[in-house]
Amino acid sequence: MIRDITLGQYYPADSILHKLDPRVKLVATITFLVALFLINSWIGYLVATVFLVSVIRLSKVPFRFIVRGLKTIFIILLITLVFNLFLTPGDRVLVQIWKLKITDRGLHTAIFMAIRLIYLIIGSSLMTLTTTPNDLTDGLETLLGPLKKLHVPVHEVSMMMSIALRFIPILLEETDKIMKAQIARGADFEHGNLIQRAKNLVPLLVPLFISAFRRANDLAMAMEARCYRGGEGRTKMKPLIYTGKDYCAYGILLLFLAAIIAVRVLL
C-alpha cells in the first residue's frame, strides 16, 4: 500500500547507466535540472525530451516504474496547473468561466510548468533508481570534498545522508508491518473525518517512532563498536575512479547543455 514511492529506491539492472561513476550521474542530474529552467521554447523541450527518453532507454528501468514516482507529486502538479491556468494575465482570453479566465499566456505557462515539474521528478528519480544510496553519497562526498577546506563537515553530512537513505525502505517496511498488526487488532486507517483519522494514526506513529529510535540507538552502538570516529584519514574499500565511459558521458552531457543554451540564445 505504501510501496509506490520510487524516489530513493534503487532498481537493480545491468545497464550502462548503472555502471557510470556516481559523480557523473550527480553532475548530470544537476545539469539536467538547471537546463530545464533554462528552457523557454518548445524546441528546448524537444531537446530535453530526446535526451531524457534516450537516457531512460539506456537505463533499462521499466517506464512504469519511473512514472510511479509521479503519483506522489500529482496533487502539487494539479495545483500548479490550475493556478497557472487561471491566474496568469494575458492578452487573449480563450475561455471565461464566471470570473476565472484562461488566457493564451496562462495556458502556455501552465503546460510549461507541468512539463518542467514532471521532467524534474523523472530526472532525479532516474538517478536514484540507477544508483545505490551508498554510491550516491560516496559520489557526493568526493564531489564536495574541496569544501572541507572551508570547514564544512562533508563526510559527516554524507554519512547522515546515507544513513537516512538507508533507513527509508526499512521504515517503510516497518510502517507496513505495524499497520498490518494494528489492522489485525481492528484499527481503521481508512474511514472517518480528518480529525478522527489523525487520531487513528497514533497506534501507528508511536510504535514507529519508538522503533526508529531503537534502530538509531543500535546503529550508533554498532558504529562505535567498530571504532567509527568520523572522516579524518578514512580510506575507502572502493575508491571512485573515472573510466572511459565516464568521460564519454561528460562529453554527451556537455553537448546537451550546449544544445539547450544554443536553443535559448538563438531562438
Partner: peptide, 20 residues
C-alpha cells in the same frame, strides 16, 4: 473483514513492537 479479524486473531512477529 473487520469482523473476520476479530474472529481470526493474528499475533505478528515481535508483537511487542506494536505497543503504543
Amino acid at each position: 473483514m473487520r469482523r473476520l479479524r476479530g474472529k481470526v486473531g493474528l499475533v505478528f512477529q515481535y508483537p511487542e513492537h506494536q505497543l503504543f
